[in-house]
């Protein structure tokens, strides 16, 4: 079995498995984010639970971090190997004749998403880790009330940050438009080539990033 994951097909399968995991995570993350539009209290409760529950923090979070890092590292490894496999480039190559822009540029959409993740970690994740585990304040409170919603609104005051988030999520949509069905094909499933799942993949790939965009833009224009 260890030989399997060293083979070209094994690496594809590993990419697909981590992709499925990350695509599932996006749904959870978006669900929590969306509550911030409808209920400040619910968003605070959920954020506090996610931020302090030991199972989430010490079991799910490390798995998620591993999934993210693995997907990126494997993506780069595969890209480098593929570049080596090409050798000399064509003087004239008409890629658009037989494949989508999204499928040919996964490395670039992936790089934009990576740059976004760095920004996102600096914005939210690193400050959270600092407050909770370095300063040791697990209360989630600031000036007598939950701090999560106010921090969220504060971050999206900056038009530059909202702009960066919107661009990153458009690239995420393009990444998913190829990645969703591609993951099924890599797993050897015929489902990715069926009309119904292709349609579902398109809907998922547009709805999920659009949801994140709506949350960022909403808080930019509705801060109090």
């Amino acid at each position: 079995m260890s030989g399997f994951f060293k083979s070209s097909i094994g690496r594809k399968v590993a990419m697909a498995l981590s992709a499925f995991f990350l695509m599932f995570f996006l749904i959870i993350h978006l669900a929590v984010n969306l509550t911030s539009i409808f209920s400040e209290d619910l968003f605070n409760e959920l954020s506090h639970f996610m931020g302090t529950n030991p199972a989430v923090q010490f079991a799910m979070q490390p798995v998620l971090l591993f999934g993210v890092v693995f997907h990126f590292v494997m993506g780069f490894v595969l890209e480098l190997r593929n570049r080596k496999a090409i050798g000399v480039s064509y003087a004239k190559n008409n890629g658009a004749a037989n494949s989508t822009w999204m499928s040919r540029n996964m490395i670039y959409s992936g790089l934009v998403i990576l740059a976004f993740l760095v920004l996102h970690f600096i914005d939210f994740w690193i400050p959270e880790i600092n407050v909770k585990y370095i300063q040791g304040d697990m209360s989630g409170m600031h000036d007598g009330e939950f701090r999560y919603f106010h921090e969220l609104q504060h971050k999206f005051l900056s038009p530059a940050r909202v702009g960066a988030y919107v661009i990153a999520f458009i690239l995420l949509a393009l990444h998913l438009l190829h990645g969703f069905t591609s993951a099924f094909q890599s797993m050897g499933s015929t489902a990715g080539r069926k009309k119904a799942l292709q349609t579902f993949g398109k809907v998922y790939s547009i709805i999920i990033p659009l949801g994140f965009i709506i949350v960022a833009v909403y808080h930019h224009f509705n801060h109090h």
């Binding site: 097909i9 595969l78 593929n82 090409i86 591609s182 094909q185 890599s186 015929t190």
Partner: peptide, 27 residues
């Protein structure tokens, strides 16, 4: 040879119309 990323270009250019399904089956 490189690693397949499922662009599907091969299936379009194949003179014999070999389907991507064969790659899924090999996987």
């Amino acid at each position: 040879f490189g690693n397949c990323t499922n662009t599907g270009a091969c299936e379009i250019e194949c003179p014999k119309g070999i389907s991507l399904e064969n790659i899924a089956r090999m996987n």
